[in-house]
Simulated assay, not measured.
Amino acid sequence: MLKDKNSYRLLIIEDNLGDAVLIEDYLEECFSHVLLHKVETYQQARTVLQSSKTFDLILLDLTLPDLQGEELVVRILELAPQIPVVALTGVNNIAFSVKALQLGVSDYILKDELSALSLYKNIIHNIERKKYYLDLKSSEKRYNDLFHLSPQPMWVYELDSLRILDVNEAAVRHYGYTEEEFLGLDLFGLRPPEERMTLQENIEIIKNTRRTYGYGVYTHMKKDGSLITVEVHGNEMEYDGLYARIVTVNDITKSLKHTEAIQNQNELLREIAWIQSHKLRAPLSRMMGLLDVLKDVQNADDPEELKFCHEQIENSARELDDIIRTIVNKAEMSQEITSR
């Protein structure tokens, strides 16, 4: 058979010299570059695994002079949790080999059925499977970190029952529930009664269209009964074998109130501008015209007309004063909105 040209580092824990030599011969037949380290006892294996040496795979005989069976398997796995361990066993020890799989070894090989090809397949398969497993665990850890450490409220819910399957700390804090209480809720428990029909309709749309991504703005209800307006981003996922969705929530209640305040302020400013450009000019124009008339009246001998001019000027002044007061009040209201 063609030799594998990749480099591998293997540890053989085997006290039977004949078996160890046979395994070494098979490895030379299959691999071009194998760095092989051989030990005969658990204590020797412990010393090697606690050193700086690293290995791609461990071949472990289940019966060593200083330790055997379940305790041996458990201790080796504790010393090398990231390394695939393949048990070497005889025909009369198959039952325990199966138990060793349950304890965490990657695979087992029957010594009596060992060949170069079977050994090669077993080693490559278990090295690659362990890499895949570690990559998967790393991916799960990244997901857990992103989920549970996110500053945004997030949760996972089952699409059929709508029950909450997982929730992060940000959601627990923001909604006021304990984690246990939150996990006892379904989506209806987070909505006010008047929005529950809309929720049911949205869920039916998601189910019927198998829509992967969704976005919407909804009203949610906290534990204390207060209502908040939220943006919800949702995406489908599989969670422990269940068809589920993960959602991220952004509370926009304050943002909406701020926007509304700005709109109100702008409306007041528009009113002030209109008053200044239209209402303010009318009494001011009348007063200026009356002043011109008053000059002529003062030179004439007509007290009634003079009195009329005075009254009109006074009325225009009062009207102007009212308009200025209105402008001042609206300006103060605008200032209050800005300072909120």
Results as ranks from 00 to 15, higher is better:
Leu103Ser: 07
Phe308Tyr: 02
Gly216Tyr: 05
Ser51Tyr: 02
His233Leu: 03
Asp25Asn: 08
Gly234Gln: 08
Ser118Ile: 11
Glu113Val: 10
Ile94Phe: 07
Ile205Phe: 14
Asp301Met: 10
Glu236Phe: 00
Leu149Gly: 07
Asp321Ser: 12
Glu113His: 13
Ser106His: 04
Ile109Pro: 06
Lys295Val: 04
Tyr175Phe: 15
Ile206Ala: 06
Ser139Ala: 13
Ser339Phe: 09
Leu119Phe: 03
Glu180Asn: 09
Cys30Asn: 13
Arg210Ala: 10
Thr89Ala: 02
Val328Ser: 14
Pro192Ile: 08
Ser118Tyr: 07
Glu78Ser: 15
Asp322Lys: 14
Arg325Ser: 15
Tyr239Arg: 06
Lys295Ile: 04
Ile246Met: 13
Gly214Arg: 09
Val328Leu: 14
Ile164Leu: 13
Arg281Asn: 06
Ile275Phe: 06
Gly104Arg: 10
Asp251Pro: 02
Leu187Glu: 04
Ala80Asp: 01
Thr89Cys: 10
Phe188His: 11
Gly176Val: 10
Lys131Met: 09
Asn264Gly: 00
Ala100Cys: 14
Leu88Lys: 03
Leu187Arg: 02
Asp322Arg: 07
Leu149Met: 14
Arg286Thr: 08
Leu165Met: 13
Asn144Gln: 14
Gln102Asp: 12
Ala273Asn: 06
Glu28Phe: 03
Pro193Glu: 15
Lys222Glu: 12
Asp296Ala: 13
Ile272Asn: 01
Asn92Pro: 12
Val39Asn: 05
Thr326Ala: 14
Ile127Met: 06
Ser138Phe: 00
His37Glu: 12
Leu35Val: 06
Ile109His: 08
Lys131Ala: 02
Leu242Phe: 04
Gln152Lys: 11
Glu24Cys: 00
Gly90Asn: 15
Asp186Cys: 12
Gln335Asn: 12
Ile324Pro: 04
Arg245Tyr: 09
Lys99Leu: 05
Ser7Ala: 09
Gly69Tyr: 12
Val217Pro: 12
Gln152Asn: 15
Glu195Arg: 05
Tyr213Ile: 15
Glu305Val: 12
Glu14Gln: 11
Val249Cys: 04
Ile12Pro: 01
Leu268Met: 11
Ile272Asp: 00
Ile58Gln: 01
Asn250Cys: 11
Ile123Gly: 01
Leu77Lys: 11
Glu78Asp: 13
Lys207Pro: 02
Ile23Gln: 06
Asp56Leu: 00
Gly90Asp: 02
Leu320Gly: 03
His233Cys: 01
His278Trp: 03
Asn168Trp: 02
Met333Val: 05
Asn6Ala: 14
Thr212Pro: 14
Arg142Tyr: 08
Glu195Leu: 04
Val21Gly: 03
His33Pro: 01
Ala20Met: 05
Ser7Ile: 03
Asp145Tyr: 12
Tyr218Gln: 03
Ser339Trp: 10
Ile262Thr: 11
Leu306Val: 00
Pro65Met: 12
Ala95Gln: 15
Gln43Ala: 15
Gln200Ser: 13
Leu185Phe: 11
Met333Glu: 08
His220Tyr: 14
Leu269Thr: 00
Ala282Asp: 10
Lys223Leu: 12
Asp15Leu: 11
His174Cys: 10
Ser7Cys: 06
Lys38Phe: 09
Gln265Pro: 00
Val328Cys: 03
Glu158Pro: 04
Phe147Trp: 04
Glu179Gln: 15
Ile323His: 01
Thr41Lys: 07
Leu162His: 08
Lys257Leu: 13
Ala244Asp: 05
Gly241Gln: 00
His220Val: 02
Glu236Asp: 11
Leu11His: 01
Trp155Lys: 13
Glu181Asp: 11
Ile246His: 04
Gly18Glu: 06
Tyr133Pro: 02
Glu336Arg: 10
Glu140Phe: 05
Asp66Thr: 05
